[in-house]
Nucleic acid binder design. Structure first.
Lengths: 193, 193
DNA sequence: AATTATACTTACCTGCAAGTAAGTAGGAAA
DNA sequence: TTTCCTACTTACTTGCAGGTAAGTATAATT
């Protein structure tokens, strides 16, 4: 039936991604995925026998996106400011596209239900995120793009935390909050424009 | 049977609070509440006909706790630093007591399911939190306890966001992350000790 | 032409979640 | 002492969630 192999699988991942970042792990079902795609419940189980398999695929997909968008900077360095602004823009865009929460946030709520495989994958994703933003902070301070006290890694972790929290606040209070927090991060980094 | 009126009701709220802050709105059921209390499922429905009634009670309880612990400062002012440290200590304590996520965070995941009554109650709670921390920032800067650029309210919102995000990160990476982020907040506020 | 693999569908099962209707035990009020 | 209220229990209903087993259409392989 399907001409392009893997088409349904991709659509399942797309849909699941969207639902996951909108409602969290326990906020959607296999039916929520299959129905809009016009396939049956069991079709989803064919590709992802259980929900943890599906979640694992989402994390991997997410991780892949991160790697793709940070690999160049991680390899060659470069100006730090656009990296930070890229993160802001990405976050804002996700929120505008009906994905108000991030993967780590979605998983952290139901953390106790996760199996070790997922926990570990999530952990690696987080580590890579922190590593990237730490390097952005290091380079940014070296090049005098940013100014801050404390260790780059602490600063990076605190910014990631802020953005994660900002998404939650933004969901309740609107996207203005997001922009307000981005602006405060810039201010805290001594950026004026 | 019950000697003290309202005893079961209080126990239900206690248990629900704990479950809510550990697993989120969709992560627990009426049975999860009733069983450990040694009552039946329907006993919970007697006190809280549906889940939204229960959630509303939890938000009110939470709001009451906030008001109790901030009313003095809101009325009379005072040194700001202990207020901030109190927030840090409270957050750390909650996480150590198996309540890794906060009410706002728990609700934000399942935000679309909430009725207007709950959304509004949550909104008021948030506003009061921001108002309090904004005043802490204002007073702290006036008294030269803190030093920061930008508006007190932006700073307050960004700190609340950071703490909310920090809880999520801490759940994945351990409580060390929480302390690291608190330390970065202090550093960003020019606090040295 | 028969065989195998892929990508599903049909038709189930189990279990739990939310919720309800009707009954009951014990105390307070009339 | 009967009546009523509170605070439950018993015994259900509905519905969906996750999951499975067996069948089927299509295309590629041998």
């Amino acid at each position: 039936m399907s001409t392009t192999a893997g088409n349904t699988r991709d659509q399942i991942i797309d849909k699941a991604f969207q639902l996951m970042l909108q409602r969290g792990l326990n906020g959607f079902s296999y039916r929520d995925i299959s129905e809009p795609l016009g396939v049956k419940n069991a079709a989803v189980h064919y590709h992802f026998p259980n929900k943890m398999d599906l979640i694992k695929a989402l994390i991997d997909e997410n991780h892949h996106t991160l790697r793709r968008s940070t690999s160049e900077f991680m390899a060659y360095g470069g100006p730090a400011r656009p990296q930070l602004e890229g993160l802001f823009a990405f976050t804002m865009n996700q929120c505008q596209c009906g994905r108000p929460i991030c993967m780590v946030g979605a998983l952290s709520i139901d953390y106790d239900e996760l199996n070790d495989d997922i926990k570990s994958a999530n952990d690696h994703f987080m580590k890579d995120s922190v590593d990237w933003l730490t390097k952005v902070m290091e380079v940014g301070r070296e090049q005098q793009e940013f100014s801050f006290d404390g260790e780059p890694m602490s600063k990076a972790v605190s910014i990631l935390a802020m953005i994660q929290g900002a998404r939650q606040l933004a969901r309740v209070h609107g996207l203005d909050y997001l922009e307000k927090i981005f602006e405060q991060i810039r201010t805290d980094l001594g950026i004026k424009d």
